[in-house]
Nucleic acid binder design. Structure first.
Lengths: 145, 145, 145, 145
DNA sequence: TTTT
DNA sequence: TTTT
């Protein structure tokens, strides 16, 4: 049993990559998940410049990865159900670095922007995407509802 | 929302510490949580010497920390409900290291040994507990049922 | 281990009661939690007049019960973390009825109305709250943030 | 989001059925999930003959349904991850009855019997199943590890 | 390296 | 008895 549920906001736009040979899409983003703090404790921590959220890396595979990349932007609120995955790699200095990510089974969009623009304009996928005739950044099959 | 449930086995005996001024008990241990793999995939990964479990650090506070230290040993199966907590510190080389732990709200003991001995040593609550007759580190009030 | 996380919308305004002797507040409401359905399956079920959500009774105790009653209204989106509680009672015909509720440990408000009005009535904390000028059912201390 | 994790013991052997036309296997059982009670509260409730567990119906579909029917017996400890499903039907007296079940995505066996017999002898599926040559109550592919 |  |  390895089961996680988070609700939080993206700290940046998602990053979408494709696995070289298989072409499988993966997207990654970090969620800021507010710590459950009293008003007083929260103020105290903000005063001390301590973080009032946990910052948790999410990994999404397959078609859902593309949907996330197409619809989510920095600041958006999402729910994630998944599992914790740990790993490690050696950095440039040959130092072992341990990693912890959440591999999502399900991402639920809890907010829809006024428009669906990316926070950074160009690579857009929404209602007012760049007005180039015949350009279709997303497949219609990709719409998640 | 930040909610985690894990079932796994301790990779070592728990480590119990007390916070200097408050005296609050904290114990920490790592859980090996088996990845959900098919027989074939599991064999393949074992053949390649890849881990077939995720290794997840658990932090327990308060009275439950002492109960864990007193009853759990390496290899024991437990269920944990808690939340993900992220943080960072700078190592000796001044390099930032990011950490992820589970802060437990609840630890459920899913196995009870033939006896309640620590894995190493005699009826002890510390792995290198000295072999002194009549010494009873576990308070009877501490029994969790 | 008995751990539930739901995200859904209130089917009605919450109902707030106080336990006779202790005065402990309890509020109850039902959450419509959308089933995870493909577009096609969803249309099919709507066509057949089958429900596309699960309807789950939530029980909230203590101060959070009042906060829910004061801020939540029909249609609002919330996240709930809690545990399943089963019970039974005998109805007027002496027939045993089995019940299942979620006892909430935590309710997270995922939407805030343009105002904080109840769905029915004026700046009120009860659906049939009388229209008396200067009356303020919500204590300022009650604001949850 | 509709996510449940339970750890509990079967109140009876699982019941296995096959859906008429499709032949899809379904098995159902009830889990007794201990309430998280202090020793005192537990004793008090036992004295009053009040239940100290919640009794939660689990539904398992597909191959896992057969695995459950083949390996689980009354009293066995399992972990279940799934979702809450509500429904209703009209009983013989035409009275509407509301139902709540957990549809399992994953069932984890946390105990393995000394033998794998069913609690009620005959319909067995384990190491000492009836010694009839050529009789194979379970397919070897069915073994879950 | 962090979100409202 | 059900929500967007």
């Amino acid at each position: 049993m390895n089961n996680v549920v988070l609700i939080g906001r993206l700290t940046r736009d998602p990053e979408l990559r494709y696995i070289p040979n298989s072409g499988t899409p993966v997207s990654t983003f970090t969620l800021a998940v507010d710590k459950q703090l009293s008003r007083d404790k929260k103020q105290e921590m903000e005063a001390r410049n301590q973080p009032t959220a946990d910052f948790i890396r999410i990994v999404v595979w397959g078609k859902m990865a593309e949907t996330c990349a197409n619809y989510l932007v920095k600041g958006r609120l999402v729910g994630v159900q998944g599992r914790i995955q740990t790993g490690s790699y050696d950095d440039k200095d040959g130092k072992r670095v341990y990693t912890t990510d959440i591999v999502a089974n399900n991402v639920e969009f809890l907010e829809w922007g006024d428009n669906n623009n990316r926070s950074s304009g160009f690579d857009s996928s929404g209602s007012d995407f760049p007005d180039i005739e015949g350009f279709h950044p997303i497949d219609n099959d990709d719409i998640p509802f």
